[in-house]
Structure formats: structure tokens, C-alpha cells
Design a protein around this nucleic acid. Sequence first.
RNA 1: CGGGGCGUGGCUCAGCUUGGUAGAGCACCUGGCUUGGGACCAGGGGGUCGCAGGUUCAAAUCCUGCCGCUCCGACCA
Length: 480
Amino acid sequence: MEKDKGKKLVEAITSMDVDFAQWYTDVVKKAELCDYSSVRGCMILRPYGYAIWENIQRYMDDEFKATGHENVYMPMFIPESLLQKEKDHVAGFAPEVAWVTHGGSEPLTERLCVRPTSETLFCEHFAKIVQSYKDLPKLYNQWCSVVRWEKTTRPFLRSLEFLWQEGHTIHATAEEAQAETIQMLDIYAKTCEEFLAIPVLKGKKTDKEKFAGAESTYTVESLMHDGKSLQCGTSHYFGDGFAQAFGIQYTDKEGKLQYVHETSWGVSTRIIGALIMVHGDDSGLVLPPKVAPIQLMIVPIATHKEGVIEKATELKNRMAKIVRTRMDISDKQPGWKFSEYEMKGVPLRLEVGPKDIEKNQVVLVRRDTREKTIVSMDDIETRVPQLLDEIHAALLAKARAAQEAKTCAATSVEELKEILDRQPGFVKAMWCGDQACEDKVKEVATATSRCIPFAQEKVADTCLCCGKPTNTLVVWGRAY
RNA sequence: CGGGGCGUGGCUCAGCUUGGUAGAGCACCUGGCUUGGGACCAGGGGGUCGCAGGUUCAAAUCCUGCCGCUCCGACCA
């Protein structure tokens, strides 16, 4: 039935059900999100990929500012002695930091690490600038890149250098710091769901999975198309541990010296990996409208016919005032353009040709469902934004349904393993709190605890591993 | 770090077994024609075959080492 021509190029993207990992790599490359560089494990963010990051940045930055945070910039180098100050922290990061040992040809008296995260730099600075309770809180954030010398890398999911934001705040009281930790986790959840259409599971990490040096770590976890989970954002409460290690003290109203309470929180370009793996399909990327660099792509048909380009340009100028609009008037075939912008995940396409112009109409085509709607040219200003909203809602609903369909419950480690082998996803199971049991789950079922969800429920009375009575529900899975 | 696969114009790959002056398709450039799901015709440009050694009269091809990419595993904010 279908014509053979052109099929070969469409097949350039491996089907997700054949080989999900290959599909992911194909999409990243074909959609021109990033490219490999000559440095192992480091990637080049191309304009289209970077534009996605800029949109995420803009959204989150507005949220940070709206909650009273200020942006700063710290150095990219950390002296070894400074990194050593908090022992859990250094133990966690030392194995994967990159070291600078020479300045020009001169050996340095103290080697410098390239920041894997900046807690130590912020702490050192906070210790200097805080004297009184009147100096608190300090609500700082920085947008930067960090370096972690990973053994294996994948575009967006794990690279030696990656872009992120790291928030670092200090507060007079533990309560205030704890509230900050949760507030930022909520902003991350909101970013995922309302901006990226990625449903998330909010919860607390077990001690085994928490951040090096943290008292508690909170996470928003999401489920990818292949059933593996990915941490989309993380928020840590440090208590006064770092404050003690770095001497961050203030004088309270009673004139007594107190340690500050600290938090940190971060989201990285890894979230773009989630975006790809949650919404993508066999034709390529599917971008939720709010984050899409191009929201509406205008494809004029039969551009050589009189009046087509003029009309398409007029429509583009009208739409560009409302949504991020592009028009392709290159002499490629329309079919080529359709495939190209589907691969790039553009949420909505507008086709306009001689027949449409005659009838004063355009054809709107949704990327997510490929549904075509014929709309009067007079109505596009209202219909396009409406459709974009519908697409966002549909993507979120679809992803939520997929997550629910892949969420099961287990009462034993064996059952958990059996479920994950059959259908990877989230598995709810009770846990006694003992790390030995958590280790056992990893050993037997090759699954890790994703989080202790805030929304607790009871799927059994006893620990899935040791059988001791417990009321704690943990969600398990296999993670990226 | 362990195991598998791969490295030849921008991309996908053939050529390697059996050594003998570098190939195809796509992409790109020029012109024509076409335009509602990846067109067609003609002409054109572009590669020290991942790197370094070795064997040989001669290496993309054989040998050794290294580097990189990729997948699986281990490790890991």
C-alpha cells in the first residue's frame, strides 16, 4: 500500500521496542540535540538541545526568584583541603573528581579539583559572610556545569561534564531549612508535571541512597518508557553537619553562637533525557509544548504557486506574536519536512496550500496523535494555543497512565524480582528500614530503592525481605 | 573496571577471508523539473581507510599496542 520511497530514512530511528537504548541514541542524534566531542564522555549541546535547556532554565529560574532566591557564581576549582572538610562528602565524591595539578608548566602547591558539586565552596563563603541572625537566611542558586569522572557515559543521562543548577541555602533553624528542602522539591515536581508533562513520584531517599553528607535527601522520580526510573531532581537537608565542619555560625537574638541549618538542591540536563524517554515515540522526539523551542511549524505546500508563500508568511507573522513559530520555505518535499519536524518533536504543524487558501483554512496536525484538524484562518489565534494546551494535558495524562500501568506491589523479594523481570516499573513493597534488607533486594532482584513515597500506603504488614513487621512503604525499581 | 559489537568522504555501510593505486547509497553544490507523507534527471566537489608501531617490493586488508564510540554488567548523584 504505502509507497517505498523515503521509508529508508524513516527507519533510521530504531524502533523503541526493538532496542530502547539504540532508539534513545538515534533520537538524540537525529533530533540534533547534541553531538559527541573529541573529549571522551563530553557532549556538545547543539542549538536545538540547548534551546530546550534554556526553556527549562527560564521556567525554573522564575520559580526560584519568585521564592526569594538569588543567583551567584562560584569558582569551578576547589582546593583539595577544602573538599576534605566534610568527611562523608569527600568520601562520596573523591573517586570521581578531576584534578588540576599544573598551572602552565608549574606544579601547583595544592592540587585543585574541578567541582563535582559546590557545597564546600558555598560553605566556605557562608562562613565568611554570616555573623548575625539578621544575615539569615541566605537563599542562593547557581547555574553552572560540574564534572564527574564517570566510567560509562550516555548523552544527557550521564556525561563527564553536565549543566545544572545547584541551590544552596542556610537558615537559622532546622524547621526553616526543612521547609525549604520540601518547598524546592515541590518546585521540581511542579516543573516536571506542569512544564515538562512528566508525572513524578515524590519521596525520601533511604540512607543508602542519600547524598554524601546529607541528613536527608528527597527526590522526584519518574518512570521512562522502558520501565526504568530516573531521578528528575533532588533536594537535601543537611542539618548543621556542614555548618559544623565549616564553622558557619551566627549570633542569635540572645547573643548566643549558633550553627546554621543548610540545604542544597539540584536539577541537571539529565532531565532532558527524561523528556526524551517519557514522551518520545518511533518517529522521534515528542516535546511538550511549554518546553518546545518551536511550538508551531508552518509548512507551506506548493510554494511555487502564486500567493502561497505570501499567505504562509502572513500566518507566520500573526502566530509568532502568540507562540514560538517557525516556517520552512526550503525547497524540500513537504513529506520530508513532515518527517523532519516530527523527529524534532515539534508539537504542532500548520499546513497551508493552494486548496486551503481557496477555502480560507489551514490544516493543523498534532505531533502526539497525528490528528489533523481543519481550522479557519480567522480562528488560528485561538485554536493554536488551545491545541497546545490540549497536547500538554494529553501528554501528561498518557505518561501518568503509563506510570500507573507499570506500578505494581510485591510482598517478597522473589516476587519483586519476578515482576521487574516481566515488566520493569515501580514496585511497591514494605521495608523494615534495615540496610541489609535493602542490599539483599539489590543482590537478588537487581533493584534499588527509588524512594520512601510521601504518599504512604500499606501493601503488606511485613518487610519484603526479613519478614519483620513494618509500616514503611518503599518504591523499588531499576534506575538510570 | 569486566564482557560483546564497531571505527573506511558529512551520514549509513561495502571492500579485509585470499595484500596489488578507494567504492556505493544518502547528504552537499549547480541547473532543470516537482511539491497535501522523506520525488526525479543531468553535472560537480569531498576520504593520508581511528592513531602508533611491525611484517612486506607493496597494507584499508596481516600482526602488536593504544584511543574512541556503542550495548550489557559492575560502580556512581
